[in-house]
């Protein structure tokens, strides 16, 4: 089965809010997209449990919800970590070796683009150009930017954030 293997940690408050919103949206045509956008904002991602609630309340099949969730790149089946790592695979970064950095990140974290580590500390996204090609290759962690990065730098950077917890 695709999707996050992390245990679902939604709260009853979140569920109440979601169901309330879905009830408001129910009667409007084309409610599915705004409903899913709201849910993603609320939970940070669209796990199985949340998609089931959306399907149930809007009286659509789970297949339809999942189809939309996997069609649009704005939706994610995986939560984001406390530290969101972005590695730029845009042209300038790529020709300067960002693929090697990306490979190293995947190897060290045991996840691939779009996924999140089991401790929810790190999530990884292969991104397009982040707008500072002069520093290529570029890696970002939340708002911190690391330029001219080499695969051997990655371990120390990750350790720094791990220490912060």
């Amino acid at each position: 089965m695709k999707g996050s293997t992390l245990p679902f940690d939604g709260t009853p408050e979140q569920e109440t809010k979601l169901r309330q919103k879905l009830n408001e949206l129910k009667s409007t045509p084309g409610a599915l997209m705004p409903a899913m956008q709201y849910a993603q904002e609320l939970y940070g991602y669209l796990p199985y449990e949340v998609q089931c609630i959306i399907a149930e309340e809007l009286d659509v099949t789970l297949s339809e919800v999942y189809g939309v969730a996997t069609f649009y790149s704005q939706f994610s089946l995986y939560p984001k970590g406390k530290y969101k790592i972005g590695i730029c695979l845009g042209t300038a970064c790529y020709v300067n070796g960002s693929q090697n950095v990306y490979d190293k990140l995947q190897q060290l974290l045991g996840i691939t683009s779009g996924e999140c580590t089991d401790d929810r500390l790190f999530s990884l996204d292969a991104t397009r150009c982040v707008g500072c090609c002069g520093m290529a290759p570029v890696m970002t962690v939340n708002d911190d930017v690391y330029g001219r990065i080499k695969p051997e730098d990655v371990e120390a950077i990750l350790a720094k954030y791990r220490e912060r917890g």
Partner: peptide, 21 residues
């Protein structure tokens, strides 16, 4: 019944159950 749908997009599009169950 509606247990199958078109998942993902572009060249990766495939007919399967939700979450590829």
């Amino acid at each position: 019944v509606g247990v199958i749908g078109a998942n993902e997009r572009g060249f990766a599009t495939h007919v399967a159950c939700p979450f590829d169950m």
